[in-house]
Design a protein around this nucleic acid. Sequence first.
DNA 1: TGCCTCATGTCAACATCCTGACATATGGTC
DNA 2: GACCATATGTCAGGATGTTGACATGAGGCA
Lengths: 156, 156
Amino acid sequence: MRQVSSGVDPGRLVGYQLKRVQAALRSAMDAALRRHDLTTPQYACLELLDQRPGLSNAELARGAFVTRQSMNVLLRNLEDAGLVERPASAPQGRALPTTLTAEGRARLAAARGDVLTIEQRMTAHLDAEQADLLLGHLERMTDALEDRPSPVRRQR
Amino acid sequence: MRQVSSGVDPGRLVGYQLKRVQAALRSAMDAALRRHDLTTPQYACLELLDQRPGLSNAELARGAFVTRQSMNVLLRNLEDAGLVERPASAPQGRALPTTLTAEGRARLAAARGDVLTIEQRMTAHLDAEQADLLLGHLERMTDALEDRPSPVRRQR
DNA sequence: TGCCTCATGTCAACATCCTGACATATGGTC
DNA sequence: GACCATATGTCAGGATGTTGACATGAGGCA
């Protein structure tokens, strides 16, 4: 009988299984998107821009869970590849609204099928009701984590 | 009525919500572990070593979902901090079995409480049965993703 | 108007992680 | 014993991401 010191089996922690699925998903998406000359963050950015054209760099960064700086170089690469375009100067404020080019839309359409196939393979064992429940649980888990108790801001 | 081109709401994709929870969880853990002078990957490594003492660098890397190289520098840092120790030479083969020091165990015990608090906050809205179902779903999702169709290995 | 706060874009320095490569040790097969 | 496949630890290079900092523009308020 092997005993553990904490009395908690890490494999039964939601946090661990969450990390495990996410690693597997990221790996599968990287492999699939490589055929379309895209990385997973780049695909996420294109998907965001397709849903809500004109998003700024900072808004895209928040939507893709990266920093503004990371999204900035990512956008520069997509711009060099001709998949997105930004105006040279800001129409108002400092935000530069980004939009997909025709080629960007085409590349996204080609990649989306492969990504959706992975999503379906991942959730194949769930029926519609179970999938809805799972989505609801995941959303509530995020909400529970995001109302921070004390963000440790500066208190001068 | 705003319409989307793909007909798929990204917010209702399990993959997106998965990424969202994981980002929030990672952020919460980083903030909590900073008080113990630990990073999230470092904590994962200590937890693995507590459960299964004597794990090698490569085994730890697989368990923490990083590469051997990353785990190597991570272990070096933990070694410099006096939390783990490795023999100078391999007792057999090339694998260097890593073990926790007394200070490593103490640091882990101190940090574990905070991490478990986050886990409980995240899953507070789930009863035991729902948590079991969720864990089962996550495990099956990982399994579904890991039987790769064609890893695109070299075929000379 | 002036001042303050906030958000944005961008630069530099640093840390982290990965890909590719190599030498070494083990186990299996002939 | 000789050979080969596999696994491990390690090194070098580069790509990617982050923290910290700064200047600019918008909006609120006295």
